[in-house]
């Protein structure tokens, strides 16, 4: 019995491309610093930073609930609503896209490739630009935010969905076919039970991200907590910025925790 003894692979440092790679990275970094304005603080930067710090550490608690519908609680609920409805819409739109982009056997390669390309295009399209386009169409307000979140999320959600379809175990479907099931029965009895938990889990994950986008879309006028935030920043009322920041942090953390717990039970 012959056993060829292999030497362990030489460490990366002994290969030429290791050093070429690092040299390129260093060149890139050096190049990036050229033409950057020097980090010269404006004269009033320290004053601004001080008053900002004072405001952020002394939040305006009175703003949490004023009862007239123009308070933080209301804005946060609106943000939550934008993310919820937006994610729901995007989950529905994502389904056909996912089946289009999923690369499964016995399919023409161009079909899934073109679907994937469109999803990449949607993902790269800046969400703010999309929000502004929808503001043009339906006017400023939360509904524009819902549409922006709804359409922009498709790029990522459909990609996750299609990956779930690609990773699906084909055995269950084959056994339904072998037992005489038709296509509808294969979908209902084999595909759906496998895909549904994955889809719900992906949607919950996307919802976590949607909460974050919904809280900044208001900065361009698409409703939610971003609108009072940008007003507060522009008028430099830092104590108000502080309380809004705390509100957003609490909401994002709570949603992350809730969604994480639900996802753990699903998969």
């Amino acid at each position: 019995m012959t056993e060829t003894k292999k030497l362990p692979k030489a460490p990366a440092q002994h290969r030429w491309y290791f050093w070429v790679g690092w040299a390129l990275v260093l060149l890139l970094i050096g190049w990036s610093f050229t033409g950057m304005p020097s980090f010269a603080l404006k004269e009033n930067a320290v004053v601004v930073a001080k008053s900002m710090w004072h405001g952020l550490t002394h939040p305006d608690w009175a703003y949490v609930w004023t009862g007239d519908g123009e308070d933080l609680t209301n804005a946060l609920l609106q943000t939550f609503g934008i993310a919820f409805l937006g994610t729901f819409i995007s989950a529905i739109i994502s389904l056909p896209f996912a089946f289009w982009a999923a690369h499964t056997p016995n399919r023409f390669w161009l079909t899934s490739r073109s679907g994937k390309f469109i999803l990449t295009a949607i993902r790269t399209f800046p969400e703010i630009v999309m929000a502004l386009m929808f503001i043009k169409a339906v006017g400023p307000g939360s509904f524009a935010g819902v549409l922006a979140v709804g359409f922009h999320s498709v790029g990522m959600l459909a990609k996750l969905f299609s990956e779930a379809i690609e990773n699906m175990d084909s055995g269950a479907g084959e056994s339904v076919t072998a037992a005489g099931g038709n296509r509808l029965e294969v979908t209902l009895l084999a595909s759906l039970p496998q895909l549904l938990p994955e889809f719900v889990s992906n949607t919950l994950y996307r919802f976590e991200l949607a909460i974050r986008s919904a809280s900044i879309l208001g900065m361009v006028g698409a409703g939610g907590v971003g609108t009072p935030l940008i007003f507060a920043i522009q008028t430099r009322s830092w104590s108000r910025v502080g309380i809004i920041l705390i509100g957003i942090i609490i909401m994002v953390t709570a949603v992350d925790w809730l969604s994480g717990t639900l996802r753990k039970r699903l998969v």
């Binding site: 930067a45 601004v48 930073a49 900002m52 900044i216 920041l245 957003i248 942090i249 994002v252």
Partner: peptide, 19 residues
């Protein structure tokens, strides 16, 4: 948890408009 655009708005206020 702090969204990136919010950080940008804060730092534009501190260090001024620019990269």
């Amino acid at each position: 948890t702090v969204p990136d655009l919010m950080l940008a708005a804060l730092f534009v206020a501190v260090v001024g408009i620019g990269p």
